[in-house]
Every structure is written in structure tokens, then in C-alpha cells.
């Protein structure tokens, strides 16, 4: 069975600004990968490459064994890659229900919409109470949940969550991660890009540590802790 996502030697840049230098990563079907590293290491760029937002300058991106290098983001989405970007990535001027409706695709049957919405509200009960509220008026945690619910409306093969804990209070982070756990247990592969190392490591089986646009370490999640502490806090002289 081919992995749900495979990056082969991906380099990427924003104009003259190079962000990735030959990154290779794999997420197995139903598997989970925590992508860690200090900010600026290129984690978000990996997430963007994996969902088609950034087209790599070299290397290739395979989704479910199919080469999608250079395809448009909506083609990735249709191939089953769901990307919840970092920050408040909801449509602020649409209501909660409209945010969810937007992503829904007819191929799942016309009657599927209400099912899909119900599923989303089951997964994120807070959203159910605020269906007709403008997404821009939600709290930070609710927006984060909505941004995940939004991409989960069409059951994806892979969920990419970019910094799901960013800017949230600890108790809300716990809730977000509970939802992520539920998603993962339902069989969806997840790629989590995180700074809040602990939560991500508890959730995922495998870990990749990124530094200066390259994979510096890759292995099982339970070995990652020491690597992380080492990577972020080696001082100049004892490094």
C-alpha cells in the first residue's frame, strides 16, 4: 500500500527566499507524523508544499502514490489532502455553517451535506451551538476548530494541521488535541506541524525534526524528546 503522502527531495522558495533544501518525508496511510523544529525552520512550508499552496522548485510530491507536483491546491484537496493552515484560517465573513458548506462537494451525494454537517458538529460540539454565527466573531479556539472542521467535511485521507496550538490557552489546546485524537482514531492520517512539542509527540507515532530547511532527525516519537531539547537549546560552546 502506498503512503498517503510522500515528499521526495523537495526544495522550495518564496521568490529569492529559500525555505526548504531537499526535504524527503513520508506519511503512511492512517499513520501520523509530528513535524517539529524552531520557527523559521521551514515546517509551515512543508505543510504548504504538501497541500499544493507552494509549488516546489525541485523534487516531487506524491499523494496516495499519484504524482501531484505542480497541481493546484484544489486538486490536492480533491485528492484527499485537508490542510488547516496556521492562524485564524476561517472565512471571517461567512457563518459557521457556510464555512462548512463551502467545502462540501456534491460528489458525496446531495443528501450528504446534512450528514457531513452533523458529523462536524458531533466532532466539535461548540460549533453546533454557533451554526449561524459569523466565523470572525468566534473565539480563537473555536476558530481553530472550525478551520479543522472545515477541511474535514469531505472525509480526507490526510489532515495537515499547521500549529493547531498557536496562540491558544492550555486548556483549549487540550480540547483541540482531543479532537485531533478522535480524527486520528477514525483512521485519518495526520501530519501535525507544531511548536508545542509535548502534545504533538503524544499524538503521533513518528517525528521529524526540521532545522534550517532540512530534515535533521527522523524517528519514533518517543525518542524525539531529547533530540528536541538538544536541538533548541544547544548553546554555542557546548553544542
Amino acid at each position: 500500500m502506498s503512503p498517503v503522502l510522500e515528499l521526495r527531495g523537495v526544495s522550495a522558495s518564496y521568490g529569492p527566499f529559500r525555505a526548504l533544501f531537499g526535504v524527503s518525508l513520508t506519511v503512511e496511510a492512517g499513520g501520523s507524523l509530528a513535524l517539529l523544529g524552531s520557527n523559521g525552520a521551514g515546517k509551515t512550508t512543508v505543510a504548504r508544499v504538501a497541500s499544493g499552496l507552494v509549488v516546489p522548485t525541485s523534487g516531487s510530491v506524491l499523494v496516495d502514490g499519484e504524482d501531484l507536483t505542480g497541481a493546484r491546491p484544489h486538486q490536492y484537496a480533491r485528492a484527499g489532502v485537508a490542510h488547516a493552515p496556521e492562524g485564524r484560517s476561517v472565512f471571517a465573513t461567512l457563518t459557521v455553517a457556510e464555512n462548512l458548506r463551502l467545502s462540501f462537494r456534491r460528489t458525496h451525494g446531495a443528501s450528504g451535506l446534512s450528514c457531513a454537517l452533523d458529523r462536524a458538529y458531533d466532532l466539535f460540539p461548540q460549533l453546533g451551538n454557533r451554526r449561524s454565527q459569523m466565523a470572525g466573531t468566534l473565539s480563537g479556539g473555536e476558530q481553530r476548530m472550525l478551520s479543522m472542521a472545515r477541511v474535514l467535511v469531505n472525509p480526507p485521507k490526510l489532515l495537515i494541521a499547521d500549529e493547531p496550538s498557536l496562540g491558544l490557552a492550555p486548556i483549549i489546546i487540550d480540547e483541540v488535541y482531543q479532537s485531533l485524537r478522535a480524527i486520528r482514531e477514525a483512521g485519518t492520517a495526520v501530519l501535525i506541524v507544531e511548536q508545542q512539542v509535548g502534545h504533538a509527540l503524544q499524538l503521533c507515532d513518528r517525528t521529524a525534526v526540521l532545522g534550517h530547511g532540512a530534515v535533521e532527525w527522523e524517528g519514533p516519537a518517543d525518542e524525539a524528546t531529547d533530540v528536541m531539547v538538544g536541538q533548541m537549546f544547544t548553546t554555542g560552546e557546548d553544542g
Binding site: S51, G52, L53, P73, A77, R78, P85, S89, F91, E98
Partner: peptide, 14 residues
């Protein structure tokens, strides 16, 4: 309306 707000995010919705 979605494209007005963010074309990129709209694309992520397929």
C-alpha cells in the same frame, strides 16, 4: 464570497 476573502483558502476547500 469565500474567494473575496481568501482565494488560497478557498482552493484548500477544493
Amino acid at each position: 464570497r469565500a474567494v473575496v476573502e481568501s482565494p488560497r483558502m478557498t482552493e484548500l476547500s477544493g
